[in-house]
Design a protein around this nucleic acid. Sequence first.
DNA 1: GTCTATAGATGGATAGAC
DNA 2: GTCTATCCATCTATAGAC
Lengths: 199, 199
Amino acid sequence: MARKSGSHSEITGPRIRHAALSLFAQHGYAAVSMRQIAAEVGVQAGAIYLYVTDKQALLFELMEAHMDDLLAAWAAVPKPKDPAALLRTFTDFHIAYHLDRPDQVFVAYMELRNLTPENFAAIEAKRRAYEAELEAILGAGTDGTFDVADTRVTAMALIAMLTGITGWYRTDGRLDAARLQEIYWQLTRKMVLPEPVTA
Amino acid sequence: MARKSGSHSEITGPRIRHAALSLFAQHGYAAVSMRQIAAEVGVQAGAIYLYVTDKQALLFELMEAHMDDLLAAWAAVPKPKDPAALLRTFTDFHIAYHLDRPDQVFVAYMELRNLTPENFAAIEAKRRAYEAELEAILGAGTDGTFDVADTRVTAMALIAMLTGITGWYRTDGRLDAARLQEIYWQLTRKMVLPEPVTA
DNA sequence: GTCTATAGATGGATAGAC
DNA sequence: GTCTATCCATCTATAGAC
């Protein structure tokens, strides 16, 4: 696996980021050494610094790339007009996106403490922008489509509920992604749609 | 603050655990050194080893104590017979307990990766026991009290939703604990109780 | 019971050969 | 572009004085 020496660059930069992401997700940023990352890629520790300024920048770039991808992916999704349909579009998107990228999601949620204050602020702003998307969907339904007492709290409750899937979901388990999307939509629907009037 | 020297033990052991918990919650287990913990307590690094075998044992003891406390506290709560009332008892308990111990909760959820395999298995078993409590409550209501398609998934969804509060709640914010308990009960109630028959 | 001192290992990051 | 070698800081844990 490990190259002997003298190889040309090819895609060493991306491979470093991929290895770092995987190791950070498994063991945590602080517990992973630059030497471990280099070994995973098959280069020596010193070579990493040709592609990354330092360890902190490596973490930040991974988290920023994830947040940017997330926001861009959601922006690219066609949005139905109907608030309830739009909400289902969001829950389906959130589940599918997060299940497809467990390492990115895990690092983005777990390593906030290890960012410098400036880097933390940048990531936090992007996270808030994403939360604001859901809040806006719920807020647009206060005409009677939704029955939501507190838009902000409900948005946070929904995101926590949906993101929590990544903590226990196993791809070889009894549920596939489509079934999960259906179950969580039923939970979401009951949570925010008005209850039918009793007979 | 820092003692000069020659002081007697008093409560140095508990103070070490308290300082470690606080620092682990802030910066993460791997990022915190034994010297930092010692400095917080006001002793030298070497003194810690009179009370703790090593850093891993320190982490494990903190997490085990938290899980044991959690299970014992729930066991001590009076349980109403009615499934819906019991569910509300659980959600109120979970919110109050978690809001009162943000550091313990944070460490218990974030540092699982840093446990040895044996220690991880021990903590995971206790966590599963707690999740099973909620699953049993939901399962006991399948006579018609609850409308739950998948007991296990719904239990995980509820726990993630409730625990997520600790990620954004600020004690100086606009919501107090009682208001949160009320909001989250409404969300929970709508999620799992059957919808009234339409007129 | 706490201190100082230190062993022994490992970390991030850099310099210079190839 | 990658490697080897290394600097220097820091870490966990222990030994022994007080």
